[in-house]
């Protein structure tokens, strides 16, 4: 395990069993996420991405192997991990500000401080002026930004994002992708992003973990050495297209053998 690893996955395996069948969702997955790094996990449907997310987030137990955060094994949702889910998780009965302060409220942060911090992070995600708006008054993209602000508000060591833009239209995805890049750059936030979008993974990531289909195994880790700062404009470069093509070949080729880690 690297000393700078914020998150370490060691020989992680997960099997689902019921009366009729046994399904191996993950098999011997190993990788680290270094501090300040943005790593994406990508793979075809059924490769275990969501299972991986649920295990790391502490929402699913009963697995073999280790998940270490800051060198310590987890035993449920970790207090230093912020999560952004695929579904809209904003609380409809609270305003945007109320949604962000919620994360601080449950941690016992005093009222004045939590309002200040919430306003700051709503500004970081570009929602200044929308503090008193309820989720029903915000677009899908804005609601996800509220969810991101809420996850950032308590300054987690790691952000976990499970296909955060999957339910949004393409233009909004590009806009939010730029926002995530800005957050990563500004806050030096460690992020693990689960996605099914190859362009999104290449646009945002320092490294991409490519998973093979069921049983979910780590097929390859690709280092994306595109220069930073990046934006959605980076997609115009030939190097970007090359990475996308390479990863598409990997994802499509379901029967390719697992390569040595890069």
């Amino acid at each position: 395990m690297s000393e700078d690893a914020a998150l370490s996955i060691r020989n992680l395996s997960k099997t689902f069993a019921d009366s009729a069948t046994t399904t191996v969702a993950l098999q011997s997955v190993n990788f680290d996420v270094t501090r300040n790094e943005l790593v994406s996990v990508i793979g075809p449907s059924g490769c275990g991405k969501s299972t991986l997310f649920n295990i790391i987030s502490g929402l699913t137990g009963d697995y073999s192997g280790d998940v270490l955060i800051g060198g310590q094994p987890i035993s449920g949702p970790h207090p230093d991990v912020g999560m952004v889910f695929q579904e809209d998780s904003t609380l409809p009965w609270r305003s945007a500000l109320g949604n962000v302060t919620f994360a601080l409220e449950v941690r016992g942060v005093p009222k004045k401080e939590r309002v200040e911090r919430a306003r700051h992070f709503l500004d970081v995600v570009g929602l200044s002026g929308f503090e008193q708006h309820r989720p029903a008054e915000l677009s899908g993209g804005m609601r996800q930004r509220v969810a991101i602000a809420r996850a950032l508000a308590f300054q987690p060591k790691i952000m976990l994002m499970d296909e955060p833009f999957a339910a949004l239209d393409e233009q909004t995805r590009f806009t939010l992708g730029d926002k995530v890049l800005e957050i990563h750059r500004q806050l030096q936030q460690t992020i693990l992003l689960v996605t099914h979008s190859i362009t999104e993974a290449v646009q945002l990531s320092d490294r991409i973990v490519v998973m093979s289909p069921r049983p979910g195994r780590l097929k390859r880790i690709v280092t994306v050495d595109l220069p930073r700062p990046r934006s959605s404009d980076s997609m115009k470069s030939p190097a970007f297209s090359k990475f996308v093509s390479q990863i598409w070949d990997d994802v499509r080729d379901a029967t390719a053998p697992v390569e040595a880690l890069k």
Binding site: G76, P77, V81, S89, L91, V106
Partner: peptide, 18 residues
Amino acid sequence: MKPIYRHLALSMRLSAYQ
């Protein structure tokens, strides 16, 4: 109830009362 609310409560390590 939307399962996401349960996940949110779990992920934020809320006590049963919270």
